[in-house]
Design a protein around this nucleic acid. Structure first.
Lengths: 201, 201
DNA sequence: TTGTTTTATTGAACGGTGTTCAATAGTTTT
DNA sequence: AAAACTATTGAACACCGTTCAATAAAACAA
């Protein structure tokens, strides 16, 4: 291994160290309460060092954003072996909601944090992969007779929105207006209500 | 008018002046970019003064949060004269989405900002009124034969979630992954897709 | 090996944030 | 007129993201 190669490796390792530290602090204290100084302290480096490896805070969180999507997509891909597309669709939705409850902070980052302008476009990213995966399942449902006379794109957006809506209300603690129901109860039965609706359509 | 009465009036006027200033800055620059100093400057007072009338930033934005719900609820109440409950439900949803697009910052405050713990409970607030109003319409739909065998509470949560999901994706700029469609196009047709689904259920 | 250049790290500094509080100016009461 | 109360100020505190001159460490060249 040449020196240049080792240097490259070291640089990557340092990037990883920062990202790992960022993830730890961030998963412990939540997105809003994580500062660059916190991250630097976690890995025992000075704040300035972070800027040698990452352009700004946005770039660090953009990496974790991608990581979140990769995690979610992996969980969804496991369900590819569910033969019936509608059953698969229901399972994907369930996985989605479960992911949000178990990884609230990742979910926040992926869908609810204000992205810095520089990272908005993103272009061909993992988020698009995840959406395409969902769209494929929905299309398969349509080919089996579900959701007649509906455009796949809009249908996908609608289904994603509906599931996301449940997760978003959960993540931002807006479920307390529904008295006599726990958040878990609402999410579970609310989603079941939705799938029942999909079944009839 | 006694002096005490005048004093009280003056205190309320000052609170209103602060809230008006806060609303102006906030609707101009968005929630994230509005500071206490900005608000103070807008009304030509020193930052410290704000703390004589409001406990903290959270209390100011909690007031605007309530204001937003009052605004939305008023828009929905106008639709009470739509006789057919299902038509009314569809109209309420449309109003909801329109409100989000026209009052992105209010919407953020109402549904997407992390509330300070002190204001989370809120108890009997306007948000609950708005949700009850929606629930009443949905119940009326059920009494006319729609949404058979579904519990009103979960149904309400589900429908709110779905509509909110559309608005949340819009407000946090997460629609760019759907290529070949403008945000407006997605929201409009996505919602139509949803109502079509409701109609069949 | 020595000197030079490149690379990595530091921590102080800048201008911002929400919030507190002693001092002060203004008003009401005694 | 003096005392008491009320409203306002702006400096100060501890934080924030970010920049950058200084510096230490490593790699390269002679």
């Amino acid at each position: 291994m040449t020196i240049a190669e080792r240097k490259n490796k070291e640089k990557e390792e340092m990037s990883k160290r920062i990202l790992d530290g960022a993830r730890r602090v961030f998963l412990k204290n939540g997105y809003e309460r994580t500062s660059m100084r916190n991250i630097a302290e976690e890995i025992n480096y000075s704040p300035g060092t972070l800027y040698f490896y990452f352009k700004d805070k946005g770039e660090i969180f953009n990496k974790l954003h991608e990581e979140g999507f990769r995690l979610l997509l992996a969980k969804c891909k496991v369900l590819d072996n569910v033969a019936d597309p509608f059953e698969r669709l229901k399972a994907v939705g369930k996985t989605f909601i479960q992911f949000a409850t178990e990884n609230k902070d990742y979910y926040n980052l992926m869908f609810l944090v204000d992205e810095a302008d520089d990272y908005k476009k993103g272009g061909l990213n993992v988020a698009t992969d995840a959406i395409n995966h969902l769209a494929a399942t929905i299309k398969a449902c349509q080919e089996k007779g579900h959701f007649k006379d509906m455009k796949t794109d809009y249908l996908t957006f609608m289904i994603l929105s509906s599931i996301h809506g449940i997760c978003a209300l959960f993540c931002k603690d807006r479920t307390q207006n529904f008295k006599d129901h726990t958040t878990d109860d609402l999410m579970k039965n609310g989603y079941e209500c939705f799938t029942m609706m999909l079944e009839r359509a």
